[in-house]
Design a binder for these strands. Structure first.
Lengths: 151, 151
DNA sequence: CCTTATTATCTCGCTCAGTGAGATACTTGT
DNA sequence: ACAAGTATCTCACTGAGCGAGATAATAAGG
């Protein structure tokens, strides 16, 4: 690691620190609402899919989180018991169960993550087009690298 | 959320995706080495402290990870059993136990995270000083926001 | 000093998230 | 209709992390 790369290394460590801090932030959300980190991750997966216009079955949810079927059932039980989620039997294929997020869970999430998102957007409004492109390009590149690095 | 902010929102979501993917990357490291996510987090805390020239006691480690004393003891037992870490009784204060990371664990970590770090540094080398400042500023700002947002 | 409070770690018994094996219910291809 | 395949669920179990409290070392007061 030559000295010339010092500034770059610092930024890479900063990115890792941000990832850790964002993790802590969502862990706080989990704890305040009597949930576990996995439950929050599940809600995020469900909401992302919803925004992309896709339905999420129990199986897809479990796969996205790296859980087996037993763990997935337990997870959905937990979320349903807490009222964050509803099971809906598939119409076309009656084996499937699609998981729908309750409006109150969405509101809860917006209440907790909204301020942070607003602040981040606010930060970005101070940069010009070329700077925004640099930020976007770096993040997209790291994302691709992290995905590829996993065989 | 007015339409003008669309590009900013996209970058914020990208950052969140990067955080998730980095989490997955370190989860893979954990699984490949028969460890749990908490164990990896612990090693990162220990190595960060080491690089900053600080010793880490069992108590400090537990506090950094949000574990109570029982969980911390179990964690250190696990890491020690796997040979990633050594317990060293404090010299001045013999109640304390400082945790030292074994060289092999450091090498293991470098082997897994090294390529990703190199690629991230490589990405950054394509940007000029102003673009680097934008990336650094945005990440530092988000980090601060995430920390402050937690009461 | 000797007693009492404080601090750091550990032990014990427990809860509960997640696993593996396999049951159940529905769908599809022949 | 029947076998094979797919989606979810049930059950018994493992192990991470917790609460309560034990143990041992240091610090503070009389």
């Amino acid at each position: 690691m030559p000295d010339q790369r010092y500034e770059e290394m610092e930024i890479v460590h900063l990115l890792r620190a941000v990832a850790v801090d964002l993790g802590r932030h969502s862990a706080r959300f989990a704890q305040r609402n009597g949930m576990h980190p996995t439950d929050v991750r599940a809600l995020i997966v469900l909401m992302d899919a919803y925004r992309a216009g896709e339905e999420t079955s129990a199986g897809r949810l479990g796969a996205a989180l790296g859980l087996n079927s037993a763990g997935t059932t337990a997870l959905v039980d937990r979320l349903e018991r807490a009222g964050h989620v509803r099971r809906v039997r598939g119409e076309r294929d009656r084996r499937k169960v699609t998981i729908e997020v309750d409006e109150r869970a969405v509101a809860l999430g917006r209440q907790h993550f909204g301020p942070l998102i607003d602040r981040a957007v606010g930060l970005l409004s101070g940069y010009d087009e070329r700077e925004l492109a640099a930020i976007r390009g770096f993040l997209a590149g790291v994302r691709e690298a992290a995905a590829e690095e996993g065989d």
